[in-house]
Write a protein that binds this DNA or RNA. Structure first.
Lengths: 212, 212
DNA sequence: GAATTTTCGGTAATGGTTTACCGATACATG
DNA sequence: CATGTATCGGTAAACCATTACCGAAAATTC
C-alpha cells in the first residue's frame, strides 16, 4: 500500500458509496474510466487513488472487482471498527446529526447528546438520550466515547472542547464556526459551512462572468 | 489584486470572522503573526492570503487596519450582495439550515423551503414558509432564488437538482451524499460529512499510532 | 536622533498533487 | 489463433500551494 494525501482521503468515501451502489445492482467489475465519469474525476486520478488502497491489481479490459474494492475501502477507512461519539449541543444541527441514520455505516456510533436546556434533558433524540451537560465529566468516560461532536455556539465552543478533552476526547468534530485549540494528541476536524458557501458563491460569480 | 487559490478562498471566512471579533473589542490594527497564532496558520500564509484581497498595504510594526480588512473581505466574498436561496427537503438537516441565523451575514437569504410531506407543507420553519415540492416550477422563479440547497436523500438528489436547474438555479449547495451532474454554467458545491469524518478518523489513528 | 524591534512585501525554494504519457497485458472479435 | 482494443501500472512532467528567506520600512526605545 502506497502513501496517500488528504485530498485522496476525502475522495474515498465517494468511491465507496458508488461501489456499494454497483454491488446492489449486481455489477462485479468496474473500470477506472467508468468510475471517473460517474464521480467527475479523471481516469488517471481514479487509478492512482485506488492503487493506494487496493490490495489486488486491476485487470486490463475488465477493471477491478467491486466486492474487493468495497472490502479494501471499508477496511482502509476504518468503517469496520466502530468509534463512540457524543453530541454536545442538541440544537437544530446537533439534533439533526443525532438523527442521521448513516453514521453507523461509517463506523461512527452516536451514544448520547449533552445540552444545558431543561426542555431537552431527558428527551430521546434519534433514539439516544440527551443528558445534562453538567454530567459530562461523569458520563463521557463511562460511555467510552472518544469523539465529541461540537454543535454549540462559537462563543462557548472552546470551553466546551476543553471540557471534552479533559473527559478523554481524542477527536473533535467541530460544527461551530470557529478555530479550536487542542492539546497535542487530540485531533480537530472542522465542518465549515461559511467556507463551503464562499466557494459556491465565488464559482457562481466566475460562471456568470464567463457567460458574458 | 492578485490571484488566489480555492484553499485560500476557504480560509477567508475564518479571517473575516476573527476580524469582526477584533472590531467588537475595539482593536484597530492587527498583525499577520497575531492572526496566524489565533487561527493556526503561519504568518507567511496569512500575509500571502491577505495580500490577495486587501486593497491597502499593511504597515510595519502595526499591521493592517481591521476595519479595512473587514470591508475588503466582505466585498471580496460577496457578503454585501445578497443571493436568494431555497431549501429542498425540509428534514432534520434542511430544517436546521432554515433555522440557521448567520447565513444573512454571509449574503445568503433563505427564502422558502420545499418538501413533499403533508405535515410540513404550510408550516413555517425559521420564519420561512414550506411549500409543496410540486409548486417548485411555479414558485422558484417568482421567489427569484438562484441557489438551491439540496437536503433530500441521495437516491432522489439528482432528479431534484435537474428540476431546480430547470427552474433557474445557478448554484447547488448539496448536502446529499452523492455526486451531482449539472449542465455547463451551473455550479455544485457539496458538503460531504463522510469525507470530513474520514479525515478525522484517519488523523485520530495517526495520532494514536504516534503516541506508542 | 540613533539603535532596536516588529512587521512588511517580494522572491526563491520546497513540497505536494494532478495530469499526461507509455509500454504491457488481458479480454473480445473474427 | 491472430488482431484489435480497453484498461492496466508506472514514470515523468506540469501545475499549484506552502514555506523560507531577505532587505526595507515604520514604530518604539533609549
Amino acid at each position: 500500500m502506497k502513501t496517500f494525501s488528504m485530498n485522496q482521503l476525502e475522495r474515498y468515501p465517494a468511491y465507496l458509496k458508488y461501489f456499494k451502489e454497483l454491488r446492489d445492482q449486481g455489477v462485479e467489475y468496474v473500470s477506472s474510466p467508468r468510475i471517473g465519469a460517474k464521480l467527475g474525476y479523471s481516469e488517471e486520478q481514479v487509478r492512482k487513488d485506488l492503487q493506494c488502497v487496493s490490495v489486488s491489481a486491476g485487470r486490463p479490459k475488465r477493471g477491478r472487482s467491486v466486492e474487493q474494492l468495497i472490502e479494501d475501502l471499508e477496511t482502509f477507512l476504518g468503517y469496520r471498527d466502530v468509534s463512540g461519539a457524543i453530541v454536545i449541543g442538541v440544537g437544530h444541527l446537533g439534533g439533526a446529526l443525532m438523527n442521521f441514520p448513516s453514521f453507523n455505516e461509517m463506523g461512527l456510533e452516536i451514544l448520547a447528546g449533552f445540552d444545558v436546556s431543561p426542555s431537552l434533558i431527558g428527551q430521546k433524540i434519534g433514539g439516544k438520550e440527551v443528558y445534562d451537560y453538567k454530567r459530562l465529566h461523569d458520563l463521557m468516560p463511562k460511555l467510552n466515547a472518544h469523539i465529541a461532536i461540537i454543535c454549540v455556539p462559537a462563543s462557548i465552543a472552546q470551553s466546551v472542547v476543553d471540557s471534552a478533552v479533559c473527559c478523554g476526547a481524542k477527536g473533535i468534530w467541530n460544527f461551530a464556526p470557529t478555530h479550536l485549540d487542542v492539546p497535542e494528541g487530540v485531533v480537530v476536524e472542522t465542518v465549515d459551512l461559511a467556507s463551503s458557501l464562499a466557494v459556491l458563491s465565488h464559482r457562481m460569480n466566475e460562471a456568470n462572468a464567463k457567460k458574458r
